[in-house]
Structure formats: structure tokens, C-alpha cells
């Protein structure tokens, strides 16, 4: 299949993206903020009863095996997948073209694929105070036993929807609407000031 001719993507964070150390960092930076700039962000949904077939297709195409259970997920670095609702999964690849890799395998009888690569922005927060800063935004439990490695969560911040994957013991990837990404990024920077943050 021919590669799609998509326009080069501009970061919505650009005017507010200032690499370097900021805030109260005299004693070190406790969180690092960055945009992962994933090439592919897909939403896959199975019809009721077709969940296992969809999970198998995801495994074949991405090589990632979803663990059992609500909100389960796995993150290999280059690729990530997590459940965000019953029978629904977010699948991410650092490279573009993942939607084409799924083409033909998710038949109308199994479910649907929605390519959100241009509709979501992935923001990463990492560091010893990542849980602390995240807890200012989202009313969910970020402790490792309650929010295990690779797991996904659907929640919101001031009525703006967000999906969160724990991509490391002290690292989270936040998927927000592209149109709200700059606003969220600015809020995240403000919330990180007290602990000292570095933008990469």
C-alpha cells in the first residue's frame, strides 16, 4: 500500500514550548515535560462480544499483548496500547502509518478504527514529582498499586477529556484534544513551577 501523503504536522504547543529549566529549580528539577509527537494515535473499538478478536488483531499488528482487565495496557517505548473504555483501545506508534497496518484486519463485523493522529496531542510528564503534579489536575489515584505500569485511564480536567497512560514508574503520557493542548500545556507548566521543571 502506498504511503499516505499527509501534511507535515506542526506542534500545537509551539508558541508556549520553551526548552530549558523553569520555576523553582534551584534545588533541581523534579519533573520533565515534553511532547512525545507520536506519529500514529488510533482509537479501536470492538462491538460487544468481539473484544477478544480485536485484542488478537492488535497483538498481530503491533506485537503488543494487552493484559486482562479494565484499563489494562502495555508500553514498549516505540508502541503503546491501553484500554480506555469497555471494548475500546488507544493504540500509539512513534511512526506514522499505523492505521494502514490495520487496514483490512478490522472488518465491519469486528469493530471500527478511528485515526486520531492529527486530533490528539501526547504530553509526557516524568520525574519524582510526576504523581504529585498529576494529582493537582485529575481526581484519580496515581499511586503505582492503583495505577499500574502500562495501564490507561479516561478522566477529565475542568471538563476537558483526557486519556492517561502510565508509561513508566514515574512517567505518564497524557492524550488531550489537539485544540486544547496548548492551554493544557500552559496549565501543566504552571502546576510544575513549585517543584521545578524542565521542558525538553
Amino acid at each position: 500500500m502506498a504511503e499516505p501523503h499527509l501534511p507535515e504536522r506542526q506542534s500545537p504547543l509551539e508558541p508556549e514550548h520553551h526548552p530549558g529549566s523553569h520555576g523553582n529549580f534551584e534545588h533541581g528539577v523534579d519533573v520533565i515535560l515534553s511532547e512525545t509527537r507520536a506519529g500514529s494515535i488510533l482509537q479501536l473499538a470492538a462491538w460487544p462480544g468481539e473484544e477478544k478478536r480485536l485484542i488478537e488483531i492488535i497483538r498481530k499488528v503491533t506485537g503488543l499483548a494487552l493484559p486482562d482487565g479494565a484499563g489494562g495496557g502495555v508500553n514498549s517505548g516505540a508502541r503503546a496500547v491501553f484500554g480506555f473504555a469497555p471494548g475500546k483501545f488507544t493504540v500509539v506508534d512513534e511512526a506514522e502509518g499505523l492505521a494502514q497496518a490495520f487496514a483490512g484486519s478490522i472488518t465491519p463485523a469486528i469493530g471500527t478504527l478511528t485515526d486520531l493522529s492529527h486530533g490528539r496531542t501526547a504530553i509526557r510528564i516524568a520525574g519524582p514529582k510526576a504523581e504529585w503534579v498529576m494529582a493537582k489536575f485529575f481526581a484519580i489515584d496515581f499511586a503505582l498499586p492503583a495505577f499500574p505500569l502500562g495501564a490507561g485511564r479516561s478522566t477529565n480536567h475542568h471538563d476537558i477529556f483526557a486519556q492517561i497512560q502510565r508509561s513508566g514508574a514515574d512517567q505518564f503520557d497524557i492524550y488531550v484534544f489537539r485544540s486544547f493542548a496548548r492551554s493544557f500545556w500552559k496549565a501543566l507548566c504552571h502546576a510544575s513551577e513549585e517543584v521545578g521543571y524542565e521542558v525538553q
Binding site: A70, G71, A85, P86, A139, I140, R153, S154, T155, N156
Partner: peptide, 11 residues
């Protein structure tokens, strides 16, 4: 929520 676990009513 049967999927998400305990959440604030605001959600």
C-alpha cells in the same frame, strides 16, 4: 464505575 473504578461525581 464498573470499568474505571471509584470516581468523583463530577465525572
Amino acid at each position: 464505575c464498573p470499568y474505571c473504578g471509584p470516581r468523583d461525581v463530577i465525572e
